[in-house]
Design a protein around this nucleic acid. Structure first.
Lengths: 268, 268
DNA sequence: TAGATTGTTAATCGATTAACAATC
DNA sequence: TAGATTGTTAATCGATTAACAATC
């Protein structure tokens, strides 16, 4: 366990992860208020804008310090600054994107990137046909340059948008080169040494979670197959694969969903 | 609170959200094992492949039922089927993608989409210049067709990849048309009625969370400015905006990071 | 039977929430 | 002062984890 020193003055270190994950949401809402020149905001209003409840917001802010004024609310600009600083956004974060396919392209063009301290230091790809093209005005450079770019530009954050098969290998090279934070879009579990953070963004997982809940909305219980035979449970493992796969394919045809009314969220 | 009936036979309903979110990870690891024709796997092995610890995995599986064999492990094919069914992946999920910019394009081409029951029913865009082009072999259709497509193809899942300004409006139309699950890539908080699920994928938020931890790794405490004056706390809100913004810009220049050794994860 | 591994219990930890005293 | 709203407390809830009895 890494132990960070306790704050010298007021605040104790150790902001809960759940709070850290919400700070960007608050910051976004505050930035919108700031652009509308709103001077102050209450926890109730800000919470509504960020999509959380106000008790949670106040608790979250209490980890940062006492930045509000009782009876009044929070000063928008002041809070924007405090949260930005807490998140480390008052400094510049050069980022490399590895794998310039469709997704890498999309990310390179993503506006929100530059807006908050993040700067695309380089786009990298292993494919000679891609290297030399440009994306978002930047040249795509060859993977061979990874190490020198990371070292030369002090890059500590890498984004992986390669095919899944290449992700671990790319990750290893990034870490070896000195990157200590990785945002992984490839559907792969990455193994990294201690001290390296990995976060993942996974479309497929998100869709599957939605499907889980959707299935329940349409009134379907996935427990036992309603009419069809439930797949035979093979107690003795061994040559059961083919049979099980067959069962799975057969079960794939089942679909009571097409009949249900799309509008009815909770049909009887 | 929605109350689902208790399972008729063995299992009680109500799988914890944290467990649901991990089922796709297990499924992916199991699918890889299945492709390698591995017949059985222990909780220890599977947990390692999925990047969790084995106690958690066994607890998770215990919510689904008793699908393992003591002393042996889990039958890979059988478990693939059970988890697929639990997640609702044994049925077909038509999906619409709204907003065919860089990201929408990338998603349309995403292979993992089709692999697990999800099928792109339509690509939609409001821009006449984009409508009629093709992405991933599918024609981009106009937003006007949204309602008829959702109704006609029983679409219950929508993916929003529009600019942030259009997201809520698109969301409203999707919900009105009958969509009850939304995956939102736009950096906007979406308001939806009860019964509609929203999940969000937000690059900017993920990067900010990484930056937070990265800042701590480089030994920097964001508490009080080390040398610079901490920004003046204006107690009386009002015309403080300009001053605070100025302070914020000034503080942006501060950067002790460039000096630190990229390799040293925990410098003293 | 002996060895292996699951499924479950119980303890612990972290996050959420309502309520309200403090205070502007 | 009266009204409003923060910051904090304490209760509750949900998730994680180690340990081990059950059992293949």
């Amino acid at each position: 366990m890494r132990r960070t020193p306790v704050g010298r003055q007021t605040r104790a270190r150790g902001i809960p992860e759940a709070t850290v994950a919400r700070l960007p949401l608050y910051l976004r809402a505050l930035t919108a208020l700031s652009e509308r020149s709103v001077p102050t905001v209450s926890s109730e209003e800000l919470a509504a804008a960020a999509g959380v409840n106000s008790a949670k917001l106040r608790k979250d802010f209490s980890y940062l310090g006492s930045y509000g004024t009782r009876g009044v609310g929070y000063d928008v600009e002041y809070l924007v600054y405090q949260i930005s600083r807490e998140l480390g956004l008052t400094q510049d974060w050069p980022v490399v994107i590895v794998g310039i396919g469709n997704l890498g392209h999309a990310l390179a063009n993503y506006g929100g990137f530059a807006s908050r301290g993040f700067r695309v230091a380089a786009l990298l790809d292993a494919d000679p046909n891609v290297v030399g093209s440009t994306a978002a005005g930047l040249p795509v450079r060859h993977m061979d340059e990874l190490e020198s770019i990371v070292a030369g530009q002090h890059v500590s954050i890498g984004v992986i948008t390669t095919p899944p098969g290449a992700a671990q290998q790319v990750c290893d090279r990034l870490v070896e080169a000195g990157v200590t934070s990785i945002l992984n879009f490839a559907p792969t579990v990455l193994n990294v040494p201690d001290g390296v953070d990995v976060r993942k963004v996974d479309l497929s997982i998100e869709l599957q979670i939605l499907a889980f809940h959707e299935q329940r909305k349409s009134g379907e219980e996935p427990e036992e197959g309603p009419i069809e035979e439930p797949p035979v449970r093979e107690r003795t493992p061994g040559p059961v694969r083919a049979a099980a796969a067959k069962l799975r394919r057969a079960a794939g045809g089942k679909d009571t969903k097409g009949d249900s009314d799309r509008q009815a969220v909770l049909p009887a």
